[in-house]
Design a protein around this nucleic acid. Structure first.
Length: 655
RNA sequence: GCCCGGGUAGCUCAGUUGGUCAGAGCAGGCGCCUUGUAAGCGUCAGGUCGUCGGUUCGAAUCCGACCCCGGGCUCCA
């Protein structure tokens, strides 16, 4: 009987008797690790702890505090969820149940088309806890495909997976469910319950426990709307109680930032039912902030070499036929209206109008690049279930531009465009960006290879010179050109996709655009679509969540609120306000007909950046007491002039 | 569009098995209080209980259809 040599992640060697398992290795290293071990990572692959280790392998013992361990934990918890549901609903069948970010889900089909209610979650969770308390062993089994089909005879989704996986054309979504080499792996625990799965799993259900079921949702089998609708249960699972509590706390915090809630609390925007879904009205305060955002955008574009244009909200069908929107995008368009024998459509995009402007005269290479900019309102018939406050609406305003340039100009144009984009986003307090470069689709696309290569290289070098992190989505571009999408990370770490820079080789072709080159002959320009904020509505919604409703001074609808201590200070309070207003600040007075404490609270709740309190001393000395938002204590006896200077400096710095 | 869950006063919500169940707090109006830092006191007004039909002696409550909202799926700025 020979020994095994195992290499640990730090490069050290360990010798174990032949047949030793991951669990043996963990125990050999130490009792703490032995207890915390979830799986073993053997030469890069996760394996159950009770499997024998091969000689010479590099093995890492995985615990729940690593991503891999956590993923295993969540996957195993999903199994227990399925076990509980199948025990509680005889005749139910199950589809897939993978780990996801922060947790897991499992899809089921209940007998007779039954559905889960929220109350069921509690019952299921109780049953899951019984299974965890029973500390059942997860037992790995391998069988042939035919045998597997028999074993899962009553479970059509499992059989579909087995058939697909063993025939070798499984997609990645299903790959974790069975092996591709003709054998099928399943796990058994508690004697009765089996589930198709390649594993690995935690050693026993007792290793689980810090989980919570969260919600019931419908989900199409394999994400395809032509397939049956299954019942999905979402849950979250963590390594320990503290992590679970932390996660639930973060969810509660995110909910407090919900822009729909804040928009109504801060009197910014509302969605009157009479308007229809996905259509908002902007109240004075919201409109003021929006105007500040738009003013800033316009100022930057003006300085950035853009020409401002405007276009109507509707146009005849011929325009949309020519642009191809009616062929490719008709589902997303509002239905047409018939007027004077012609058919008009509300615009879902601004591009054809900007093309029409380009076409209004003969263009020379000397005119290029030409950058048309418009805050253009568009209407898209979004699926009703997709609508979400300001983040996804049916009417929205793009900070849209179409740039027409020569192929030679593409690289420089892209590079300066990306810098411009990031610079504008940074003004709103976004510091972390993540970009995605989408390249030519593998299937059909238009445009010459050389043009695609030029554009993709241009996008890539723009990303690199901007020093931006990016991932490449090979084949992820539209049929008409490659693109860069830019995500920003908000104050609590959530990503939001805002900007998009998109090359278009199709529209110039469809509209037969040309310019006269230096050689005197006609050439086809390249078109770049780009939006920085994407949609003003959506951007505003993201900003509300990013700032948690506390807009920085330069964007705050009410910047200063002056509170006289008593009626006799009213005149002084008004003079302070008048000074502020004269210096271009947005300031109001809240008179003394309520106690000071109540008015201070009201100012704080309204997230006013500066709540000033003025009384006898202030009136006598020309000072104010400043309650700056976020400050622990008020700052008393601050000379008004000094306060004004500070405000100016902070507005200037966009703080 | 599909699955699940919801719509009660401007907002947040109570309303037990259909029968004083049309309520509370905040916000708003009006008085009193004159306040130095996160909710002073009193009082008044506000709702076709999402809409429309049905069951019933009687419906916020039960049933149906529709509208809208939320969470998902799909899609996307």
């Amino acid at each position: 009987m020979s020994d095994l040599t195992i290499i640990l992640p730090d490069g050290s060697m360990r010798t174990l008797p032949e047949g030793a398992t991951g669990a043996d290795l963990a125990a050999d290293i130490g009792p703490g690790l032995s207890k915390a071990a979830i799986i073993a990572n053997v030469d890069g692959d996760g394996r159950d702890l009770d499997r024998a280790l091969p000689d010479g392998a590099t093995v890492a013992i995985v615990t729940a505090d690593s991503d891999e361990g956590l993923q295993t934990l969540r996957h195993s918890t999903a199994h227990v969820l399925a076990q509980a549901v199948l025990e509680l609903w005889p005749g139910a069948t199950y589809a897939i149940g993978p780990p996801i970010e922060h947790g897991f889900y499992y899809d089921f089909e209940l007998p007779g088309g039954g559905t889960f209610s929220d109350d069921d979650l509690e019952v299921i969770e109780d049953r899951m806890r019984l299974i965890v308390d029973a500390d059942q062993v997860f037992e790995r089994c391998e069988i042939g495909a035919d045998e597997a089909l028999e074993l899962f005879a009553d479970h059509r989704f499992k059989r579909e997976i087995i058939e697909q996986v063993t025939s070798g054309d499984a997609d990645t979504e299903l790959a974790g469910e069975a092996a591709a080499d003709g054998t099928v792996t399943y796990y058994r625990n508690g004697g009765e319950f089996i589930d198709l799965c390649t594993g690995p799993h935690v050693p026993t259900t007792g290793h689980l426990g810090h989980f919570a079921l969260q919600k019931v949702a419908g989900a199409y089998w394999r994400g395809d709307e032509r397939q049956p609708m299954l019942q999905r249960i979402y849950g979250t699972a963590w390594a320990d109680k503290k992590a679970l509590k932390g996660h639930l706390h973060r969810l509660a915090e995110a909910e407090k930032r919900d822009h729909r809630r804040l928009a109504s609390e801060l009197d910014l925007v509302s969605w009157p039912e009479a308007l229809g879904p996905g259509l908002a009205v902007w109240h004075p305060k919201g409109a003021l902030v929006r105007k500040l955002i738009e003013d800033y955008s316009r100022a930057r574009h003006e300085a950035g070499g853009y020409d401002f244009v405007y276009s109507p909200h509707i146009a005849k069908s011929i325009l949309w036929e020519k642009s191809g929107h009616l062929d490719f995008y008709a589902d997303g368009m509002y239905p047409p209206m018939e007027v004077d024998g012609a058919t008009y459509y509300p615009k879902p995009m601004n591009c054809p109008f900007h093309v029409a402007i380009f076409q209004s005269g003969q263009r020379s290479y000397r005119d290029l690049p030409r950058r048309f900019f418009e805050l253009g309102a568009v209407y898209r018939y979004e699926l009703s279930g997709a609508i979400h406050g300001l983040l996804r609406s049916r009417g929205f305003t793009q900070d849209d531009s179409h740039i027409f340039c020569t192929p030679d100009q593409v690289p420089d144009e892209l590079s300066s465009l990306l810098d411009f984009t990031l610079s504008v986003l940074r003004a709103f307090g976004f510091e972390d960006f993540q970009a995605k470069l989408s390249t030519r689709p593998f299937e059909k696309s238009v445009g010459e290879d050389a043009l695609w290569d030029l554009a993709i290289d241009g996008l890539r070098s723009a990303l690199e010179s901007a020093g931006l992190d990016y991932v490449v989505d090979e084949g992820g571009g539209a049929f008409y050109g490659p693109k860069i999408d830019v995500d920003v990370t908000d104050a609590i770490g959530r990503p939001w996709q805002l900007s998009t820079i998109q090359l278009d080789f199709n529209l110039p072709e469809r509209f037969q655009l040309d310019y006269v080159g230096a050689d005197g002959s006609r050439h086809r320009p390249v078109m770049i679509h780009r939006a920085l904020m994407g949609s003003i509505e959506r951007f505003f919604g993201v900003l509300i969540e990013h700032y948690a409703g506390a807009f920085p001074l330069w964007l705050a609808p009410e910047q200063v609120r002056v509170l006289p201590v008593a009626d006799e200070h009213q005149a002084y309070a008004e003079s302070v306000r008048d000074h502020l207003v004269a210096a271009q600040f947005r300031a109001t007075v809240d008179p003394a007909d309520e106690p000071l404490g109540k008015r201070v609270r009201a100012g704080k709740v309204a997230k006013v950046p500066h709540v000033l309190v003025v009384g006898d001393d202030d009136a006598a000395n020309g000072t104010v007491g400043d309650n700056a938002r976020g400050a622990e204590a008020p700052e008393r006896d601050l000379p008004l002039d000094e306060f004004l200077e500070r405000l100016s400096a902070n507005v200037e710095a966009r703080l």
